[in-house]
Every structure is written in C-alpha cells, then in structure tokens.
Design a protein around this nucleic acid. Structure first.
Length: 220
DNA sequence: ACCCAGGTGGCCC
DNA sequence: GGGCCACATGGG
C-alpha cells in the first residue's frame, strides 16, 4: 500500500488542531531526556515524573552522580517506574558508557552522525529502537521519527500495516513527511496524546475519535 | 480482579 | 526470524 504524503499530513493537521502543540519532550536538559527515555519504557509517564523529580532532589540527575550511586540507592529511587532493578542497572550502564567514552557529555555521543550514534546506542543493553530514537530526536535534534506502541496501533488502523513492525512504520513516516526535526517531534507527541485518549489496545478501529473520518477517506 | 502503560532482551523453535 | 516470556509499579 502506497501511503500518500497528503494523508499523513492531514492526520497531523487534525491531531494538532484537536489537541494543540504538545511541545515535547517534557524535560529541562538533554541528559534528562535520555534518563526519561529509559525510565518510561512500558511505564506511564506519571510514574516516571515522580522518579525524575526525586533524582533531582537527591542530586542524582547527572551522569557522574548516577555512576557513583550504589545500585541499591538507584533501585530505591526508581521504584515507582516499575522494572526498577533492570532500569537501575541499565541507566547506570548508559551513564558508565558516557563517562568512559565522552567524559559524561551525552552531547558528544548524540552529535555524532545519525547512523553512527544510533548504532552505538543500540549496542547498549536496555536501549532499543524507540529509546534510541527518542534520545536522537529529542536530545540530539536529529530528524528521525520515533515509533511507539500508539504509533503502530494508529497507523495499522489507517493503512493496514502490521502492528509491531518498527522499521516499516518508521519508513512510512520518513517517506511521507519532509525531513523536519520539529515536525517529527510534534507529530510523535500528538500520536501519543491521541493514543492515550482514544486508541485502546483491543479496539479494532478508532471509533468516535478525531481521526474517524480519515479512517474512511484517508486511503487514496 | 482484571487490563494497560511513551519497551527490551533472552529464550525457543 | 517470529512467538512467548520476565521484568514490576501504579492507575483505571
């Protein structure tokens, strides 16, 4: 199925007018984006916010501080994000990698050429495609589209794309849209906002939502 | 008492 | 290379 550029552009317009500018990622620094990207895996952002706030209060929202903090301490502070043992280990691994290779400067890694930076991130345990692309787009300002569960779900309903095929969904967006970092940032945020509100996991179609008319007329 | 959340890696076949 | 599964808390 060939996806028309105008179609995904219209989806964007509808979502933007329905929900307004989201202004993602909700973080003060690039490092905070990276931490949030790891912590929000399979977890609601609400749970992550609590932990980020705690890390700030404890002076633990920096690469060197996280490297120095004992596992038990990190686990304690990451408790409410769920999977806190894994996330403590993986967050420390990520920070250790930054410390050993980039003197704790995540910008040095993220400003490498896109393919090289992405490959490097994906080599780290606990950083998969979505997490890597979130870091690259929102912390590294690279024009790469982030695909998450909502994105797959929404797009599969609009265009008969298999749910779960990250690369296929990402390619659709890359081919259909201008290579624009700001657009990619806002579009992904809008898809998440829309997904949270109306696209339930077990619903076959987006019924009674702002994209309903596109479900009928969007495929040309 | 379920189902779900801004995933990922390790099995197994 | 796809289909399960563990990882774990918090909210509806």
């Amino acid at each position: 199925m060939i996806v028309q550029r105008v179609c995904l552009g219209k989806v964007y317009d509808v979502l933007l007018s329905a929900y307004g500018c989201q202004g993602w990622w909700p973080a003060e620094t690039a490092f905070e984006v990276c931490v949030g990207a790891i912590l929000t895996q399979q977890t609601s952002w609400k749970n992550v916010e609590r932990c980020i706030s705690t890390l700030k209060d404890e002076g633990l929202l920096s690469c060197s501080a996280i490297c120095d903090a004992p596992h038990r301490v990190m686990e304690h502070h990451l408790f409410s994000t769920g999977f806190y043992r894994q996330k403590s280990r993986r967050l420390k691994d990520f920070c250790k990698h930054l410390q050993e290779n980039y003197r704790c400067d995540e910008g040095k890694l993220l400003s490498r050429p896109l393919d090289a930076a992405r490959h490097e991130l994906l080599s780290l345990k606990g950083i998969g495609k979505e997490t890597a692309d979130s870091m690259l787009l929102y912390a590294g300002a690279h024009p790469i589209f982030v695909v998450d569960a909502y994105t797959c779900r929404i797009l599969s309903r609009l265009h008969s794309i298999p749910v779960g095929d990250y690369d296929a969904v990402q390619t659709v967006f890359h081919d259909a849209l201008p290579k624009d970092m700001g657009l990619y940032r806002e579009y992904h945020a809008l898809l998440v906002e829309h997904g949270k509100r109306t696209c339930l996991k077990n619903e076959p179609l987006c019924e009674n939502c702002v994209l309903r008319w596109i479900c009928f007329f969007g495929e040309k």
